[in-house]
Amino acid sequence: MLVLGVESSCDETGLALYSTTRGLLAHAVHSQVKMHEDYGGVVPELASRDHIRRLIPLLRIVLDEAAAEKDDIDAVAYTAGPGLAGALLVGASFAEALALSLGVPALPIHHLEGHLLSPLLAKNPPNFPFVALLVSGGHTQLMRVAGVGRYELLGESLDDAAGEAFDKTAKLLGLGYPGGPALASLAATGQAGRYRLPRPMLHTNDLNFSFSGLKTAVLTLVGGGLADGDRADLAAEFQEAVTEVLVAKALRAVRTCKLDRLVVAGGVGANQRLRQRLDSEGAALNIRIHYPELSLCTDNGAMIAFCGAQRLQAAAAGQNHGAFAIRPRWPLAELIAPS
């Protein structure tokens, strides 16, 4: 079966075709990062305006790449939430109408389930059960994953997401928007430890996080301005503080669940320092770490198509009457497993 995936929950438009027999056939992403740069952040209305221009051109690209025709599509999966309401609605309207016109099921997919299952698209996919660290600009969560649709929330950020803390701190350091990756590059040239930032909630007994205080600590240090070398050292220390807490809590979660596999997903999962520390500290504990391919760390249609395929195979899809709803706020733990 061939499943089309449509992702439009924030500032990336992603379309992909996944075959249940042949795997991922094609995926294409248009990032709006450049467009939002001038505004210092994602402008939801502009994001929506861009999504609606990109859907069909991207669909044509993936059909070409997969050497498929639109009539080969057996189901249309799309991100129904969580995310920006206006942006979600664009993808949902298009996907639902396309599914109806092709006479195939439309499958509303949870964006985080997409990220959560994206490492299963890698060459050596992990087996269930595993612990997942979802870490992006919008989310920082630890989940116990027993199978498709069987997710238990173990802990999450009580304030800023880790990626959000990266972006906000980057702004404080004058690195523009979105500064997360720029901050990571700057950190690579600096020395952690010269400044000392707190490790928020490192020793609490739960698996929750808090990152907003770090940003405030950086603000205090930046104060009257910093020399370039100092900025690099501060960036390095910031990155060290965030990764130390993420690594410690993620590995603790794996041990608490008596498991030996950790899956890392979401945009911050592309951070090299985080990967280094997870790999070395995980190896010491005999915990194997799985990552999605780098191109699937950010938002994409492939993970949505893949989730759709899992759900389609697990359960008979209902009759398509065309009514749909998006869920800008949608806790992942509310998902139910396909029976």
Partner: peptide, 19 residues
């Protein structure tokens, strides 16, 4: 209304592409 305009346009795009 911007949201409504895109609802109709997205639906029109989806139907028209499929058909």
């Amino acid at each position: 209304g911007f949201v409504g305009l895109r609802l109709a346009c997205g639906i029109a795009q989806g139907l028209a592409f499929g058909l």
